[in-house]
Design a protein around this nucleic acid. Structure first.
Lengths: 193, 193
DNA sequence: GACACAAACGAACGGTCGTACTATTTTATA
DNA sequence: TATAAAATAGTACGACCGTTCGTTTGTGTC
């Protein structure tokens, strides 16, 4: 890999950290330059615009999410175990970076602002929900869940449990947040049987 | 009411609208001045700092939430009907302003930034969760719910349903979002019996 | 109508924003 | 090691940021 590529990845890594706390709009070139100990212009030369940078930050996050959450979970046995693995890793992902899941932060920033950033984020989230839904359907096929479960609805509810985890953990600093989340998931999965 | 007070309230009303879409940090004095057709300085004279303005925006939102959601729901019959009323009005609140529930937007902006703004928001959210939890306890007292229900846990799960509604409605523009949310609540409440 | 005060304004401050240039340094290749 | 290319730095730009200031306009009271 060329030095430029290396630097770029270093930049994107730091950018993702920062964006997770101050948001993807709050992320500024100057601040990012300080954080990476580069000049603004030297850093900026790696991207054709701020929007392009933001887009690459989102894509970096997606790639990382795929590596840390999706792919490992897909190596777990089909059905319920795989769903639990997804959820566990999802929670770990949420607590990985200083500011929590960058997609959550971005969602509430971008949901009302049309543009490529929003489109990318929406696509990413849809994809993850699809993955979740498919895992549920597999669990039905495997006989782990009752056959007339509404997989989309269950995915919705699981997503809700995750989001509440963010709230309780990040804003309320509730030390029971993790237990609350896993209990809620347990309950949902048990009811699905 | 003095003219100054009237103007201030007009400003705060618009500020709340804007903050619901661009966030409470994204809200700028200049933009707000344009939206209210005032000069920056004339507007700023009503507040001692930007942070003070933001704080008052949050307080305005709290007052409105109390008027539109909490108080009306508390006039409903004790127990399950009151919980349903809370949830219905909560959903309506989410769809009231252009950018959705301002507390949700603020939560994901402020959760990692210490300060008075964060403290106020956290207190507000705790209060609402408490209200929700009390309503659940009342439903248990009334015999609507099973006596060994974990009220805190149920409040957590209801909150999750609401947050997922935001995601599906705002980001995914899912036309089934409302049904998903009410179905999820139905399911939770039915299981609590 | 004179007066005091409240309310809003316009201009300017030092900073930071994203971005466009040119210049310099570092890296890779012949 | 010379040279071209790539990577980084420096400087400057117009726009907007939150904030301060002195001034003007509006409002209500004697």
């Amino acid at each position: 890999m060329s030095k430029g590529q290396e630097t770029k990845e270093r930049i994107l890594g730091r950018a993702l950290d920062i964006a997770s706390t101050v948001g993807i709009e709050g992320l500024s070139i100057g601040e990012l330059a300080k954080a990476t100990e580069m000049s603004k212009s030297g850093l900026f030369a790696h991207f054709e615009s701020k929007e392009a940078l933001q887009l690459e930050v989102l894509e970096t996050a997606s790639a990382e999410f795929a590596d840390l959450v999706v792919k490992p979970a897909l190596r777990e046995p089909r059905g319920e175990p795989r769903i639990r693995a997804m959820f566990d890793r999802w929670l770990a992902w949420e607590t990985l970076r200083t500011g929590g899941c960058p997609f959550m932060a971005a969602t509430f920033e971008l949901d009302d602002r049309p543009g490529r950033l929003r489109d990318t984020l929406e696509a990413t989230q849809r994809e993850w929900i699809d993955t979740l839904t498919r895992a549920i359907q597999i669990a039905m096929d495997e006989g782990h869940f009752h056959p007339d479960i509404d997989a989309d609805q269950l995915a919705y509810e699981i997503y809700g449990v995750f989001m509440a985890f963010h709230l309780y953990h990040r804003l309320l600093r509730d030390s029971d947040a993790r237990r609350r989340a896993t209990d809620a998931l347990d309950y949902l999965l048990r009811s699905a049987k």
